[in-house]
């Protein structure tokens, strides 16, 4: 049995998931130590353990930890959303953007920032509602005696193009305020805080709990509508639930971190290459990997131009593709 085959056994997959959990933990610990105040992972652990309320503790607990946890949550949510959508659409190009979550959340967020700059706390709910509404609209537009994957994708692309045009038009007329909006459209964690986490934690938690429950049904659904129906799956009902979970997770992520959609495309594929497409394992693996990826990229973004920083979306878009392409060429991959 080759190493690759071994990874695809049940034990191998659990091992990969365990290792990813370790990687995520290591990424979080080392990320906590990076910044103007540099701490080694042991110092980080010590400081957090003592809870002495000193300045290093305040920096860690009030500034870095929420930002990093938010990054992990966002990365995990987008990766799970991507896994689900690629499975439901049976299309390797599907990502959270495909159901209009990004464009809808983006437009709502931009409008909010321009119209009520004084109510910045409303940004998250507005983007969340915008994202979910758009996903629902795409689903309705694709519905014709059932929502077929092809119609969903086409409706999603059309709606995203239109909303993107609206966003661009709005930005053109308000170029002077484009700075903060640019952060949003690249995807950034620089404003991560405990209140932001609290605004989305329940939606994300719900998504993370329901997604694994539906994972085997997603396996059945990827075989094709007719085969799935023949196996006794309620196809339309299942598809709706899965899209709803994907939309909820992605909407929550986009509303707090901006348009960081790329992780939702590549994290699932990288895990598919390693452990295969059984969604019962793929969902947790992609969640952990996506989380580690966002935390890692955010850390790099904070390090390279100290004391200034690069947004995480930029780092991810720069570093993700080469890694992804390397994997793609090394493995015989057929989606």
């Amino acid at each position: 049995m080759s190493f690759r085959d071994r990874l695809r056994t049940r034990t191998g997959r659990w091992c990969v998931i365990g290792i990813l959990g370790g990687v995520l933990l290591a990424a979080i610990l080392s990320s906590l130590g990076v910044g103007a105040l540099r701490l080694s992972p042991t110092e980080v652990a010590e400081t957090l353990w003592r809870r002495d309320g000193g300045i290093p503790y305040r920096i860690l607990a009030d500034i870095r930890l929420p930002r990093i946890l938010l990054g992990a949550l966002v990365g995990g949510a987008l990766a799970v959303s991507g896994v689900i959508l690629q499975g439901v659409m049976r299309n390797p190009l599907a990502s959270p953007g495909i159901i209009g979550v990004s464009s809808g959340g983006g437009l709502a967020g931009i409008l909010m920032m321009l119209a009520f700059p004084q109510f910045s706390f409303l940004l998250v709910p507005a983007a969340f509602v915008g994202a979910l509404t758009t996903a629902f609209l795409v689903y309705l537009l694709a519905w014709k005696q059932g929502a077929s994957p092809v119609r969903l994708i086409l409706a999603g692309v059309a709606v995203a193009a239109m909303l993107g045009a609206f966003s661009s038009a709005v930005l053109l007329f308000h170029a002077e305020k484009a700075g903060g909006i640019l952060d949003f459209s690249i995807g950034s964690l620089s404003t991560g805080s405990w209140p932001k986490i609290r605004q989305v934690q329940y939606y994300m938690l719900a998504g993370f709990v329901v997604a694994p429950v539906l994972s085997n049904r997603l396996n059945i659904l990827t075989l094709g509508d007719e085969i799935a129906a023949g196996l006794g799956l309620r196809v339309e009902q299942t598809r709706f639930c899965l899209i709803a979970v994907a939309a909820l997770l992605a909407a929550a992520a986009v509303s707090v971190a901006g348009l960081l959609g790329f992780v939702g495309l590549i994290a699932p594929h990288i895990m598919r290459l390693i452990i295969g497409s059984d969604h019962r394992f793929l969902i947790p693996a992609a969640a952990l990997f996506g989380a580690a990826l966002v935390v890692g990229c955010d850390t790099i973004g904070r390090m390279v131009m100290e004391p200034s920083e690069l947004p995480v979306g930029l780092i991810m878009a720069l570093l993700g593709p080469p890694f992804f392409l390397w994997l793609l060429r090394r493995h015989g991959y057929e989606a």
Partner: peptide, 30 residues
């Protein structure tokens, strides 16, 4: 429909799809 699936199985016309699964995993989905 799930109850019926225990008595009636059906294989539609194939679209040459081959999911990223092993033979045993695919059969287990049955």
């Amino acid at each position: 429909t799930a109850q019926l699936a225990r008595r009636l199985a059906l294989l539609p016309q194939q679209q040459h799809s081959s999911p990223d699964l092993t033979v045993e995993e695919l059969v287990m989905l049955g």
